[in-house]
Design a binder for these strands. Structure first.
Lengths: 203, 203
DNA sequence: AAGTTATCAGACAGACCTGTCTACGGCAAG
DNA sequence: CTTGCCGTAGACAGGTCTGTCTGATAACTT
């Protein structure tokens, strides 16, 4: 009837500039818990508490949100790995083993579902931006581990980095099946074996 | 107009009893190549060349087809692992290393996209039949490897089996990123290191 | 020859998904 | 105070998805 009757209560308003963060936080949670395809845009918008138009302003397409999500995961996970490595002490050889503590911590977290990147890659065709981003992440990790192996004086740092990333990825991949802490413990143990075996000839 | 005008040419007819196999073969291909969600029922039906009603007769729901697919993958992959292990000779220690040749062979195949089970688990919520089936598969593999470790006289077969499955899963998980044969080679090399290190005290 | 069974073709329903668009409300800067 | 920006609410379009149903045909069985 009257224009006044059409007024809507406007509910709660997100402060300017914070909408993007809220969306990304929700996406982080839902993408990781349910998968990239299973988590729909509508759900993410509803749980973020933002309007649809606001969402599409910051993320013109779902793929953009997925990439932002992967960027965030990269930062978080890389940070945890670095922190775990540094917590093991100044010796690079210790750090190579200590980084596996990040895996154990991850396993213990509620809702742990393995590696977000491996899961994302499983849902994306090769050649897509999402897939490429995943490959880049794994290469960064391996380069970092290789660097530690060089510092530790490994005779073949490439080989050692390969071995350790295999064990790390194995631990992460098994995390999507069950969050068994034994897998993380075994991964750390295996890593210690590989590191000491690799450095034995060159003490 | 006339009833005769309504007659359809009936196209090519699948021989009785073979429809299920054709569907499963198509599903095997599409599920692995695209993922469980990305491969739609309609596409599978169209590429199978069967009628929709026939499909739903054999697989009342998509989940049933997915489970049949996983069953088939299990058979194929387990067979390849066993064959690679046996090809390495009669010594159980050699077999523990030789089974990694199956990984190298898989990497070389066109359209290789890592482990179908890990990929499936990434797309399914825990607690679902699909997820449970994946966990069961991984447990079978580890039990088999553990058995080989016992035969090889490993002092701690559980630990060795854990380590080797971590490396194997790592190799498979990295396969979804890129089918790098170097990963398979490194996995075999790492496995050899772990096996010999594990048996050293007990020759 | 008649009946049974397996298959084909495709319309249809109902849900969900992504992305666009309109209309409106509050806030801050000019 | 008003103008423009950023936000909300939600309808809508066009597509895809799973799963049901009808009706007709081919092949095998009795």
């Amino acid at each position: 009837m009257t224009p006044t009757a059409a007024r809507r209560p406007q509910a709660v308003r997100t402060p300017a500039g914070q909408a993007r963060d809220k969306i990304l936080a929700t996406a982080f949670r839902l993408f990781y818990a349910q998968g990239l395809r299973a988590a729909g845009i509508d759900t993410i918008i509803a749980e973020s508490g933002v309007a649809k138009a606001t969402f599409y302003k910051y993320f013109p397409a779902k793929d953009d949100l997925i990439l932002a999500y992967l960027e965030k995961v990269d930062g978080v996970w890389t940070g945890q790995l670095h922190a775990a490595a540094e917590a093991a002490g100044p010796d690079p050889a210790d750090r190579l083993v200590g980084l596996f503590d990040a895996l154990a911590s991850a396993c213990r977290r509620d809702g742990y579902r393995g590696c977000a990147f491996i899961n994302a890659a499983a849902e994306s065709a090769s050649g897509t931006r999402v897939h490429e981003r995943t490959v880049a992440h794994k290469e960064h990790i391996r380069a970092w581990i290789r660097d530690l192996a060089v510092q530790a004086g490994a005779p073949d740092p490439d080989q050692l980095a390969r071995s350790l990333t295999l064990v790390l990825d194995g631990g992460l991949a098994s995390g999507v099946l069950d969050a068994d802490p034994a897998a993380a413990t075994a991964a750390r143990h295996t890593a210690a074996q590989l590191v000491s075996a690799s450095l034995r000839r060159n003490p």
